[in-house]
Amino acid sequence: MSQTPPPSKKTKKTKEIAANATIPRAPQRVQGRLRFELLVDTTDRLIGERGAGDLSLYDIAEAAGVPAASVYHFFPSMAAAVVAVAQRYLQIFEEIIASDLDHAELVNWRDIFRIIGERARQFYNGHEVVRRLFLGSEYSWQVRMADIQGNESYARILARTYERHFHIADPDFLCPKIEIAIGLSDSVWSLSCLRHNIITDDYAVEAERAYHSYLTRYIAELAPKRTAPMVSLPSERAAVGNA
Rank of each mutant, 00 (worst) to 15 (best):
14 T>S: 12
31 Q>T: 15
131 R>V: 11
209 R>C: 00
89 Y>D: 15
123 F>A: 05
110 R>F: 05
66 V>L: 06
116 I>P: 02
52 A>W: 11
24 P>R: 06
85 V>W: 11
230 M>N: 02
237 R>W: 05
140 S>D: 10
65 G>L: 04
151 N>H: 04
102 D>L: 01
74 F>L: 02
9 K>A: 14
192 S>F: 00
197 N>Q: 13
189 W>T: 02
208 E>V: 02
192 S>A: 00
69 A>H: 13
92 I>Y: 12
27 P>Y: 08
10 K>E: 11
187 S>Y: 00
177 K>M: 02
149 Q>W: 03
210 A>L: 00
17 I>A: 11
93 F>Q: 11
218 Y>Q: 09
72 Y>V: 08
101 L>G: 06
114 R>G: 12
91 Q>R: 12
207 A>G: 06
128 E>V: 04
155 A>Q: 05
160 R>A: 14
87 Q>N: 11
200 T>I: 04
75 F>I: 07
106 L>N: 10
14 T>M: 11
221 E>H: 09
53 G>T: 14
237 R>C: 09
164 R>G: 01
182 I>Y: 12
66 V>W: 06
193 C>W: 06
197 N>R: 13
169 A>K: 10
129 V>W: 01
84 A>D: 01
133 L>H: 07
211 Y>E: 00
65 G>T: 07
154 Y>G: 01
78 M>W: 01
178 I>M: 03
144 R>E: 14
78 M>N: 02
108 N>L: 03
89 Y>V: 13
84 A>Q: 02
